[in-house]
Design a binder for these strands. Sequence first.
DNA 1: ATGGTGGATCAAATAGTCTT
DNA 2: AAGACTATTTGATCCACCAT
Length: 215
Amino acid sequence: MNTNEKVFEVRTNRLGRFELYQNGKLVQKVCRTCGKVKLASEFLRYTQGHYRPDCHECFNKWQRKYIQENRDLRTVYRQRNRAREVGAPDNYNLEDYLELKAFANGRCMISGKKTDNLQVEHVQTLSKRVLGSTKGNIILVCEEVNQAKRDMSLFEFLQSERSRGLVDREQLERTIRYLADANGMTPQEYLDFLYRAEELAKDIKEFFENENKAN
DNA sequence: ATGGTGGATCAAATAGTCTT
DNA sequence: AAGACTATTTGATCCACCAT
């Protein structure tokens, strides 16, 4: 008897669904969700090698929905990942973000403007690598403020022309109190802290510039 | 071109549950 | 209790927008 002979075998999985094997390898399988018989290659596999119960298409659909329903979580991941990329602190979490959203209550934390498009904003930009994505360094602002501030730290922004007409004094004070609190400091301590963080960022930048020259 | 943001998608990793 | 299986979470990327 030829040992290369193709041996087909029909099995039913735990849920009684059809699976077709050839020489012990899965060839076809029924998708749990759409119920269609599909090639094994149309199913993604887990890292451990098991096939997913849903076909690729149905898994993608499920995942889309999941992502829609967990947008806040995604926002948090993104900010964490971005911080990590530049080697900055990255311990921001969902709880921090939800608390921040509740605090902002639909208003820009700089201009006080009411908006349904609040964006995450780093008080000290990520590229400076010192404060990163941490609770005391992230606020929510309206699009205008975000665009205007861009690569400035909050205090550079406040001192620059770009902030003209975009700052509500009272709101700013509330925000600083919030940030100070998040860092377990008094507002004055917090401002000093931020100043030192900026100085540190400058030193780091210089260090790397010199490093590059040397090479 | 660059550096900040958000939205979406894809696939892999991890966490958790069920069976035996 | 281990291993088979599934549910959920995370990382990586690509795209668009906006103002220097």
